[in-house]
Design a protein around this nucleic acid. Sequence first.
DNA 1: CTGAAAGCGCTTACAG
DNA 2: CTGAAAGCGCTTACAG
Lengths: 324, 324
Amino acid sequence: MNPNIQDVAKAAGVSPTTVSRVLNNRGYISEQTREKVYKAMKEIQYIPNDLARSLFHKRTYIIGLIVPNTSNPFFGELTFHIENVCESLGYKLLLCNSQNRIDKEQKYLEMLIGNQVDGVIAVTYNRGVLNSAKKELPIVSIDHYLSDTIPVVGSDNYEGGKSATELLIQKGCKTIIHINGPKDLRTPAALRRKAYEDVMIKNMLDPIIYEFSTNEDPAPIVRRMFWDYPDVDGMFASDDLLAAMFMNEAKRQGKQIPEDIKVIGYDGTETTSKLLPELSTIKQPIYEIGKTAIDRLVKRINGETDNLSSEFILPIELIENGTT
Amino acid sequence: MNPNIQDVAKAAGVSPTTVSRVLNNRGYISEQTREKVYKAMKEIQYIPNDLARSLFHKRTYIIGLIVPNTSNPFFGELTFHIENVCESLGYKLLLCNSQNRIDKEQKYLEMLIGNQVDGVIAVTYNRGVLNSAKKELPIVSIDHYLSDTIPVVGSDNYEGGKSATELLIQKGCKTIIHINGPKDLRTPAALRRKAYEDVMIKNMLDPIIYEFSTNEDPAPIVRRMFWDYPDVDGMFASDDLLAAMFMNEAKRQGKQIPEDIKVIGYDGTETTSKLLPELSTIKQPIYEIGKTAIDRLVKRINGETDNLSSEFILPIELIENGTT
DNA sequence: CTGAAAGCGCTTACAG
DNA sequence: CTGAAAGCGCTTACAG
């Protein structure tokens, strides 16, 4: 069995209380005692049991993260940055992939509460779930409005949708299609869509929106577009993966990009910029989103009163590359 | 404060012992009592504290995962699958991004031990670290030979390197460059390199290998290749990101792919297949790697004796697309 | 079928 | 400067 504080105490010839004091640098301890204890800890390779510590303090320094899927480069990068920031602040990360399934979100949330996490960062699509959570559990949401008391961190989706659409129009596109996820959810993509619509209408162009539902394969929808709108000359995709899928289908249809059709995506992950550097896109500040979310969460954990319902909208960046 | 088992006991008019029995379905309990207890739990919204449970049982059902970086699509997908398999087996995942830094690997390992994880999955590059771990801690490594007692799960890197190189040769390439990570480490890429060398030599061709060190930017190295070998007509990259970077540079040099230069990558993640579907690559069975690793780890956790040092090599798949 | 007691490994008032 | 005691929230022999 692993050595415990008793073993250290015995080895050092002191009481467990004293060992604990040395461990936590608390109260007065003679230099001699301190050294004896350190030596004993080294000798028996003692590593304190955080479970016991957490049980006493009612504080685990664990944060739960619920994302749809770290396979998606946006969430993979977000997860990386969040874990990194956590680590630098002394927190650890319990990772949950909800796959956008409400039943999994619910189960994970209960699991996290059972594990006494200090707080939760959620990228979640289902409003209901987190409301049912214990009111005392600090939660920060990324990109989704979940309830009146849960702060939201995200980037400027309206501005992003606006910039993307304006760029296409400015480049001369007339038949501009927008592809987007399900409309009924309080998703960040909804604002991108709204901006697209507003800009199109303002420019006397018809908005054309294709949508697909949560775990639906968008491939057939993309194929259908070319049938419905053979003269399509612009595409604003609500994420880079969709943009890539569209480009691929466009090539199959014998269309040249950007000559025949101009394409702009959304997210601008590192991975996209490596695998598909020619794609024009709206880049989200992924690190800043993660950092802000953790900062707000830690403030809540520490009971620092911030305005109950708050929103943090970070700026996006238009990245123009070869596809426009 | 959250309700505890005492609160439930009081609300139900029984002892904590009885509540615990109901909770764990252990021993005989009258149906009436059981219902009283369930009712009380519902009423006060009781969720058992896993910390206390774990402290008693010396079992947390938490697994630690150390990967370099979930931003990389290979590790993002691996992490997803591992977390998923964990969840299905009742385990939770504590995520660590080591960024290939030995100091972070060391710190994370101590953290995981302090948190009493039941086991660790490590994708780690530094042999030393895990040896120093407590001998009792079950560890399974992915893709890296760390010590004689740590099982390794990975895919057939030699076969992958062989297939890739043979494909290029069969397609008529003569000046085939291989780009790879640092040589001195026991990395999976080393076998890919070895296969490349063997196949090249067997075909009377000169192996040309460029390597870069752990956190070095490969971009300048890629640029240099074209200067050193203007007649390069084949590229076997040790991962898809490098392949994409090479393709990009090739285009900048006015080369056509696959007409002038044929390119094959390695990994074959979902993300690559979406963003760069034309890339030929060696596809690793990412899900199977994760699943096998967890299965082995859980066996060790449960004390099922398997051969101390064992190796699990899963088959790769050659995916031929447009770049060859 | 049910409960009182001891203990998992730690920490912190409280004494001395 | 140091230690004995009680407690964090749970579980499990041991009695009854």
